[in-house]
Nucleic acid binder design. Structure first.
Length: 431
RNA sequence: GGGGAGGUGGCUGAGUGGCCGAAAGCACCCGCCUGCUAAGCGGGUAGGGGGUGUAAAGCUCCCUCGAGGGUUCGAAUCCCUCCCUUCCCGCCA
């Protein structure tokens, strides 16, 4: 969230940022409630001040007339405070609905078409034959199964089978190893269910409740990303400044309702209700956050480079970057079969927007007052689309798939997917 | 799920109605002392918010002892609800 004081002092800036992000921002209502809240609070505090003084006097004198007056003062103070509290709750709720401002380097624009290519790596591969899609290849090889997944769970679910499942596991191990051993991240295995306060902390609530799955009958949500539990790891804490930046990497499944995405990317292993992701999270200071953000993005890119996948880095425009982000890059890997780029990572810096919600602070030095931390996160990487890009990039004309060199040790030396016997036969007559 | 104990500052922990935003210890900071180090001596160190300052500082007030209510002139302390931790029993991968 933005600080109330910041909105008081920069209402026009906040309004303009929201407008460029295409988000509503109840700035006027906030300023109005702020004035009302402070008025009642001030009244209540003045009464309390007097009451506290007289109450001490009463302790000595035991004057019954004074007691009666104090009783009335307590009543008045309580009712004023209760009005102030109600207004403040309304105010706080509105504050949670004001979008973050953005960095000056963010391109101004409305849709994905206005995003800017920041850089590219590698080239589109020349396969020498007509590229097939990952779902075509995957089903033919028996390593992906969408029909059975639909029967077991529904649309937007998938089975990975045999070498497909093993490829996913290998990728997770590979990514975790690179990030922990070479990029200096600490591995975290987080809870997959989190409470509402945590969802508010990362700004998934209150605005985006319909994007996540809620557990019936309890205050728990299936995480839409490991960003939620890992960022909230330090909720309500004051960290030592000299411990920053904290760098975490977490593998976890992510769950999304994909509400509003009906009909989009319905085909293939692309937009699922459940998917795996290796997530990078940093908690750092204001001075270092933009630099750490760039480094985190490079850490995610490093995985794509080692896998030998052509990709580009998109600098997201104001209208496409999201409610909470201060700046955001998407990493898009090339998928030759689909003949388009797939978003395999989204890297964002939030400044203190999340930290204020989650109350994550740090002390710059001993004795100094605490300051809100800055949070950063990015996928490093999301599994399904990385698998898609690998399958489509490394496919052979016979429909089998070469395993990228760096993954071979993680697949027990397997160099070619599809060379062995298929995992199982389709039942007679199909499904 | 049932029963017991408990949640106090960066940490340990005392505090059962006003002298308590809080003893003591640890840690840390400043100063003194001191060949060096250690020890010793003195002082300091919670968070949030309002008002007043152009701002910083300062001054001042209010709130906060897990959270929310209640009793009371007055609550860390008494009562209720909830959350969490821990122990015993039950169940269980």
């Amino acid at each position: 969230m933005l600080a109330l004081e910041f909105i008081r002092k920069n209402p026009d800036l906040v309004r303009r940022a929201a407008e460029l992000k295409g988000e509503p921002a109840p700035v006027d209502e906030i300023l109005r409630l702020d004035a009302v809240w402070r008025e009642h609070l001030h009244t209540a505090e003045k009464i309390k001040e007097e009451q506290n003084k007289l109450s001490k006097e009463f302790a000595k004198t035991r004057d019954e007339a004074l007691k009666e007056r104090l009783r009335q003062m307590a009543d008045t103070a309580k009712s004023e405070l209760s009005v102030a509290g109600a207004v403040k709750r309304e105010l706080d709720d509105l504050l949670l609905r004001v979008p973050n401002v953005f960095h000056e380097s963010v391109p101004v624009g409305e849709t994905g078409a206005d995003n800017v290519v920041a850089r590219e790596w590698g080239d589109k591969p020349d396969l020498g034959f007509a590229a097939r899609t990952h779902f075509d290849l995957g089903e033919a090889l028996g390593v992906m199964d969408f029909e059975r997944a639909a029967r077991v769970s529904g649309a937007r679910f998938a089975f990975l089978i045999g070498e497909g499942a093993r490829l996913e596991r290998a990728l997770v191990q590979f990514m975790l190893d690179v990030h922990t051993r070479e990029h200096g991240y600490t591995e975290v295995w987080p809870p997959i269910l989190v409470n509402s306060a945590s969802m508010v902390g990362t700004a998934n609530l209150p605005k985006f409740a319909d994007a996540a799955f809620k557990v019936e009958g309890s205050d728990l949500w299936l995480i839409p990303t490991a960003e939620v539990p890992v960022t909230n790891l330090h909720r309500e804490e004051i960290l030592d400044g000299d411990r920053l930046p904290l760098k975490y990497v977490a593998y976890a499944p992510s769950f999304r309702t994909e509400a509003g995405a009906a009909g989009k990317d319905t085909r293939g292993f692309i937009r699922l209700h459940q998917f795996s992701k290796v997530e990078l999270v940093k908690v750092t200071s204001a001075e270092t956050s933009l630099d750490e953000f760039e480094k985190l993005t490079r850490d995610a890119e490093d995985i794509l480079q080692r896998l030998g996948l052509h990709y580009r880095v998109m600098s997201m425009c104001t209208g496409d970057m999201g409610f909470a982000q201060y700046k955001k890059y998407d990493l898009e890997a090339w998928a030759p079969g689909l003949d388009r780029y797939l978003e395999v990572s989204s890297c964002s810096v939030f400044n203190d927007f999340q930290a204020m919600r989650a109350n994550i602070r740090y002390r710059p030095e001993r004795g100094a007052p605490p300051r809100f931390a800055h949070t950063i996160n990015g996928s490093g990487l999301a599994l399904p689309r990385t698998i898609d890009a690998i399958m489509e990039t490394y496919q052979r004309s016979d429909g089998m798939i070469n395993v990228p060199d760096v993954l071979r040790p993680y697949l027990g030396g397997v160099e070619l997917i599809g060379a062995g016997p298929p995992p199982f036969r389709a039942p007679p007559g199909g499904l």
